[in-house]
Simulated scan of single mutants.
Amino acid sequence: MLHTEQAREADRATQVVGVLGADTRERVERVAVAAFMAARYGSLLRTATLLTGDGAERAEDLAQEALLRTYRAWHRIGREEAAEAYTRTTTVRLLIKDRRRRWHAEVPTEHLPETARSGHEDRVSTGVAVRALLRTIPAAQRAVLVLRGYHQLTEREIAGVDARHPPRRKA
């Protein structure tokens, strides 16, 4: 859990810098942001891949846009736990916003994609099947499934991510 240690170091540095000048504070903040992004990029990219259901290019765009927005809001976020939730929420909202704007249809290609290597067929075919099924449902529902199944978030945490449906009390 390297990113947890990096987060603790960044939190300690941020507390220490509270008594220092603004210039030093900005440098420490940049280091904390860089450590967060380096530690969380892989996980965020996997989440974006599951959310988009497409190729890696759209997932990378989504992950990078979410990290860019996290960077811009870092002074309001503060800690890594809040930054991770902010980034996840931003990723889902960007996906839903993008899905409303874009035309979605199959695009025929001249060449078929490469086939999976031997020994990985089962794992690859399962992943392909899951992503194909995820593509068949609306983006908001897909986001709930990814957040619940992949990130193991509770219903309340998921409701906090989806701004269109604020958390409700169960009867």
Results as ranks from 00 to 15, higher is better:
V130R: 10
Q152V: 11
A10N: 00
I137Q: 09
A56H: 13
L112I: 11
V17A: 13
V31E: 14
E80D: 14
L134S: 02
K170A: 14
F36T: 00
L134Y: 00
T49H: 07
D23H: 10
G119E: 10
W103V: 12
E110C: 06
H165K: 08
H120M: 11
V128C: 11
A48V: 03
H151A: 05
I137H: 07
A59H: 03
G53E: 01
R58S: 10
T4L: 13
E110H: 11
L94T: 05
M1H: 09
G149D: 14
H75R: 15
A116P: 07
A34Y: 03
T154V: 07
H3T: 05
V130Q: 10
T109P: 03
R117S: 15
A59F: 00
V161D: 02
V146F: 02
V128R: 15
T70I: 04
G160A: 03
G149R: 11
A171T: 10
H3V: 04
L134K: 02
R148Y: 03
G127C: 11
A140R: 15
E57R: 12
T89Q: 11
V161P: 00
G53W: 00
E65M: 04
R100W: 06
A59P: 01
E5S: 13
R30A: 09
S43N: 10
A7V: 02
T14P: 00
V33D: 01
R99D: 13
